[in-house]
């Protein structure tokens, strides 16, 4: 079974299912940016871009930090390793299933 905190993968997948949000993430891997700068880049209203940022923050892919009076959006690198952990958990799950299937046939024979 996959661990109980893994609802985050749904949030990550949902966050990345939108082109604008994917672009935002890619921009943030290059440089930390403010919401204002992101809004300008994508020719969006502050409100519009904030909605996307909110989804990305909820997914854990982006964190916001304050430097002085300015709030920067940063890409959260640690989250990627969490995703690979989840993939590992699924791998273990399916490996155990195949082991159990093997045992079933061993006993049958």
């Amino acid at each position: 079974m996959v661990d109980e905190n893994s609802g985050f993968i749904d949030r990550v997948f949902y966050a990345l299912s939108n082109t604008t949000r994917r672009n935002i993430v890619l921009e943030l891997t290059k440089k930390d940016l403010t919401v204002n700068e992101l809004a300008k880049k994508y020719d969006m209203t502050l409100q519009g871009v904030s909605k996307h940022i909110h989804v990305l923050v909820r997914s854990g892919l982006v964190v916001q930090t304050k430097q002085g009076r300015t709030k920067y959006c940063k890409f959260n690198y640690q989250h990627l390793s969490k995703i690979s952990e989840l993939l590992e958990q699924y791998r273990a799950f399916w490996e155990r299933r195949l082991d159990a299937l093997d045992e079933y046939f061993e006993k049958k024979k």
Partner: peptide, 16 residues
């Protein structure tokens, strides 16, 4: 984002 696992099992394809 795909997990792939393989195993050789002593049974026929039909049984599996």
């Amino acid at each position: 984002n795909t997990v792939v696992v393989k195993k050789l099992i002593n049974a026929s394809r039909e049984e599996l």
